[in-house]
Simulated scan of single mutants.
Amino acid sequence: MKKLFLSAFMLMGLAFSTQAQDISKNALGLRLGDNDGFGGEVSYQRGLSKNNRLELDLGWRNSKNVDAFKLVGLYQWVWNIDQGFNWYAGVGGGVGSWSYDHNGYSDSGTILLAAGDIGIEYNFDIPLQLSLDVRPEIYFNSDDYREDNFGPDIALSIRYRW
């Protein structure tokens, strides 16, 4: 058992001591996943330091019965794995609005959420970034929009970096 704890401690130390590469000052693109029915999101990343950034994702849904939008902001830490490969983790929150209208029944409400984020990305030699991440979301006042207050979100993103 001691060896297991020592190994886990050493692995965490190695992960947090790895050198981060310089991240792009700006990146803009699409984050494509299920996103709780929102589908794709417009995604913007802003580099804050050598290994920290802010990510803003705006998702919207405009269907026959439901109209909704959701804006999520995440503060992320980025660690280099190997030449162009990074992994990242972050925390943040979001806000949104939804309305439902079907067969004479109408309802609407707001969405407040807390989110985490963990993923892996590759920065090509050209100004292109691909990433895959998981963003679990906990909803606080989603009213009738969701049956439960938890939404896992897995997405693939493609962004132009400058």
Rank of each mutant, 00 (worst) to 15 (best):
S108Q: 11
W77N: 09
S108D: 15
A114Y: 06
I111N: 04
G94L: 08
A68F: 08
N65L: 06
G93Y: 08
N123W: 01
R61T: 02
L74F: 02
W98V: 03
L112K: 05
G92I: 08
K70Q: 11
A115H: 10
D107W: 01
V78K: 01
A68I: 09
Y122W: 06
S106P: 02
V91E: 06
G96Q: 04
N86W: 09
Y88W: 08
E121Q: 14
D107F: 10
L113C: 11
N123Q: 15
S106V: 02
G92S: 07
W77H: 09
D117Y: 02
L113G: 11
F85C: 03
L112F: 14
V66G: 00
L71F: 12
W79A: 13
Q83I: 01
V91F: 14
S106L: 02
S97Q: 10
V72T: 14
W87Q: 08
G96N: 13
L112Q: 13
I111Y: 00
K70E: 04
L112T: 15
T110M: 06
L112V: 12
A68T: 09
G73Q: 03
N86Q: 10
G109C: 08
G84D: 12
V66A: 01
I118M: 09
G116P: 11
I111C: 00
I120A: 13
N123H: 12
N80K: 09
I81K: 05
G92L: 11
G90C: 11
I118D: 06
Y88P: 07
L74K: 08
W77C: 05
A68K: 07
Y75F: 12
K70R: 14
L112W: 10
V78W: 00
Y105V: 14
G119E: 10
Y122K: 14
V78Y: 06
Y105D: 07
W60E: 07
G73L: 06
A68V: 06
N103W: 07
Y100H: 10
N62K: 07
V91S: 04
G119A: 03
D82C: 02
S108E: 13
W60G: 13
F85H: 04
S108P: 01
S99Q: 02
F85Q: 00
V78I: 08
G96L: 00
R61E: 10
G109K: 07
G119L: 06
N65S: 11
S63I: 02
S99M: 07
S99K: 12
Q83A: 10
D107H: 09
L112N: 15
F69P: 02
F85K: 00
D117N: 15
Y105R: 12
K70P: 04
A68M: 08
I111S: 03
Y105L: 07
I120V: 15
Y75N: 08
